[in-house]
Amino acid sequence: MDTFRDKLIPVTSILAGVVVLWYVFAVILNTPFQRDLDRRANETSTFSELIGKTLSQPKPTLPAPHQVAVNFFENTFLRPITSNRSLVYNAWVTLSSTLLGFAFGTALGIIIAVGIVHVATLDRSLMPWIIASQTIPILAVAPMIIVVLGAIGISGLIPKAMISTYLSFFPVTVGMVKGLRSPEIMHLDLMHTYNASRAQTFWKLRVPASVPFLFTSMKVAVAASLVGAIVGELPTGAVAGIGAKLLAGAYYSQSIDIWSALVAGSVVAALLVMVVGIAGRLVDRAMGGRPA
């Protein structure tokens, strides 16, 4: 009941406000072009007719929410999944490289974090570069990686997945280093009094302690991974995927298509973050975590 009053009502009312504003702006932004059309057709429309027309242009400056919803619905549910106009198909193309890159990135991030925690040399020499690399606009490298790998004959899924890997391993590394170091001195001393070996301390103390950190950073990483996959589809003239859909929409001014591709990307992002969150909660419960 409390979540209903404290969260649901404010969130839905603000979302409703956004939708109303969206309609208002759709009318305002589309009006100049509509007036232009009317003048050429020698029509004079009344105010209400004008509003109706601005909300149903084929290539509006800002499509109205219902136009986007209709387009999204058509392209998601009414088209055969194999059609290259189907959003499900395009989302799957993007999702597959996202997941592959995310898996690689998470594995790489964990390995680097384990190395950093256990080897002092790596900690002092590699860690500053990992932090510094977050200040670099990595996405600028995206076209580079795709062209380079394309030149040696690797194309399709792998180059996009590599960009996703690159984007997603930073959060995992930073989170896991924090997580593996999170056991307190007291706990480490306890393991010491048990005469635990380094491996035992690692598996029985450090790894369980790091799990919450892992899932928190995986949520960030999976979102970054999706952005990487979408941007990876931009400069290559990729034929399928959400990024390709955005680019095609931009070339042919199909604004409704752009918006519905954006909605599809957002749905995929929300689903991915949700799945990681649920997996985190399940693992937490399986490990005997109590609700805090």
Binding site: L29, T61, L62, L139, K219, A223, L226, V227, I230, V231, I242, G243, L246, L247, G249, A250, S253, S255, I258, W259, A261, L262, G265, S266, A269, A270, V273
Partner: peptide, 16 residues
Amino acid sequence: VSALPIIGVAPIMVMW
């Protein structure tokens, strides 16, 4: 929103 690929608004902004 922080999890969404906001970068996708780029083509729309270029249009506007």
